[in-house]
């Protein structure tokens, strides 16, 4: 497993991803290789720790949005009904430098490719990271460094049948946990035929999972945990 906290030199290699810190002539060098790309930085640190963990999947190839749009197999839900399903979401890996006083993002990378989309109209919609997943009744098997498992609880609080095939989340309050696999828990509350509210839940999917350090925390971006109101439908 690559995720965790490291002090001093280390070397981790999984599939085509390699992360390491090595001492060369007294200089500490961070080196990462992923998908044929390499990234290297010299580190000057005596007490700093390196943290490698999954982060919110909205940073690559460039940080342009906070939103994640998950498209999945359409589900038709009865008024008042609830259903918990499992989806696969994309994983990005963040590398942080932590000292007693500060934490800083050193590197963000991912094994897969990215695709963005527009949720809503061009005039006042939002650009979102796009990902398509099948719907699973149980926790599916995933490639740990490419995909995570999202437990999504969908509730139809409206008085009409609702067809749902997408959910848009604000990743500013995304809580990611990891162990053998990466996981997040979310809710989707359908309020009317075109309105739904999504939220992330700060709870591990399984006991013993470790909470990830979030990019938004490391970048000191003030965040209000208020979810996202999907105003432009969910089909």
């Amino acid at each position: 497993m690559m995720f965790g906290r490291y002090m001093g030199s280390f070397h981790r290699e999984c599939d085509d991803i390699m992360v390491e810190i090595e001492q060369i002539n007294g200089l500490q060098t961070y080196r990462r290789r992923c998908g044929g790309e390499t990234f290297e930085r010299l580190l000057v640190s005596k007490t700093g720790e390196v943290i490698v963990n999954p982060v919110e999947p909205v940073n690559l190839p460039k940080d342009i949005t906070d939103f994640l749009q998950m498209e999945f197999t359409p589900m038709v839900i009865e008024p008042g009904a609830s259903q918990t399903v499992y989806l696969k979401f994309p994983v990005e890996i963040g590398v942080f430098l932590e000292s007693a006083k500060d934490i800083e993002v050193l590197d963000v990378f991912a094994a897969g490719s990215q695709k963005y989309t527009l949720y809503g109209p061009p005039t006042n919609g939002v650009v979102a990271r796009y990902y398509r997943s099948a719907v699973y009744p149980e926790i599916p098997l995933v490639e740990t460094f490419r995909e995570g498992v999202m437990e999504l609880s969908v509730t139809n609080a409206s008085h009409e049948w609702a067809e749902v095939s997408q959910a848009v989340f604000s990743c500013t309050d995304m809580k990611i946990y990891y162990d053998d696999f990466v996981a997040a828990t979310a809710t989707m509350n359908i309020l009317s035929p075109t309105l739904a509210e999504t939220n992330f839940v700060d709870a591990p999917l399984q006991t013993g999972m470790v909470k990830s350090v979030e990019i938004y925390t490391a970048r000191k971006i003030p965040v209000l945990n208020r979810g996202y109101l999907m105003e432009w439908g969910f089909t």
């Binding site: 690559l60 190839p61 460039k62 342009i64 490719s113 990215q114 695709k115 963005y116 989309t117 527009l118 949720y119 061009p122 650009v127 796009y130």
Partner: peptide
């Protein structure tokens, strides 16, 4: 291309 939007 990541930023050639899926939708529209």
């Amino acid at each position: 291309h990541p930023f050639a939007l899926k939708s529209p």
